[in-house]
Simulated scan of single mutants.
Amino acid sequence: MERNLALIALFAALIAALGMVPKFTLAFGVPITAQSMGVMLCGTVLGARRGALAVLLFLALVALGLPLLAGGRGGLGAFATPSVGFLIGFPVAAFVTGLIVERWRASLAAVAAVASIVGGVFVLYAFGVVGMSVMLDKSIPQSALLVTAFIPGDVIKAILAGLITAGLAKSRPSSVLSRG
């Protein structure tokens, strides 16, 4: 129990730390950050439930006002921006990513990368597109076109998440709870 709580807190901190990587904000107000890779790693390493809980803890801290989002943003105002769909989608993305890694038994690097693409890109984009559509008053197709700028970077992050997870499993097999 204590180990699970410590890992959930550690991965919430990892997402926050990845927010310190300099962001690049696109013209429509959504930043490109490394935090989505943290969400992917929550799922690939911790598994579905613990990964989603780590992301929920992170979002709760953001909602309380801690400046943990890229660029030092935090507070409830962060949930009233074009990024809101991505923020709401973070825990769902971690859950889906973790669920795929837990259920699909094959090469961990490949499974974690594919799971990160499915959960951390497709699922996250579904939420992000809807949030952008609402906040920017654009149609779903218009918002979907806007997020295409994120695809190359997010695919790279997904591959990195797969490689990091496989490397962690090789060096410390008991630390990859998604395969436990």
Rank of each mutant, 00 (worst) to 15 (best):
V155N: 07
A17Q: 10
A169C: 06
A110W: 15
M135D: 05
V30N: 00
L61S: 01
P91Y: 06
D154M: 11
P173T: 01
F150N: 02
A70K: 08
I8Y: 12
A6R: 15
L10H: 05
L10M: 15
M135N: 08
L136T: 02
A70T: 01
F95N: 02
A112N: 08
V92G: 00
A13L: 11
F122D: 06
S107F: 12
A115Q: 04
M1T: 11
A109H: 07
R105H: 15
G72N: 03
V118N: 01
A80F: 14
S178K: 08
I159D: 01
L14M: 11
I151D: 04
A60H: 14
V55G: 01
G131R: 07
L41Q: 03
W104R: 07
L87N: 05
G162A: 04
A113F: 10
E102A: 07
M132L: 10
S107R: 15
T81N: 04
V155E: 01
G128T: 04
S175P: 12
L160G: 02
R50S: 06
M37A: 06
A16H: 06
S139K: 09
S174C: 08
G167S: 04
I164F: 13
V45I: 13
F127W: 13
Q35D: 02
L14T: 05
P152L: 06
A60D: 04
F11A: 00
L41D: 04
I100K: 09
A70W: 08
N4H: 15
G119I: 11
A112D: 02
T81M: 07
V114T: 05
F79G: 00
P173E: 05
T81L: 12
V21W: 03
K157N: 07
M37I: 14
G120P: 10
D154P: 02
I8L: 05
R105S: 01
A158Q: 09
I156Y: 12
A158I: 09
F58H: 10
L87H: 05
A109D: 03
G162Y: 06
A27M: 13
R103M: 10
S171P: 11
A94G: 00
G75Q: 10
I140Q: 12
G89T: 05
V129I: 14
S171R: 15
L146P: 07
G71C: 00
G180W: 14
I88M: 08
A106G: 08
P82K: 00
A12D: 06
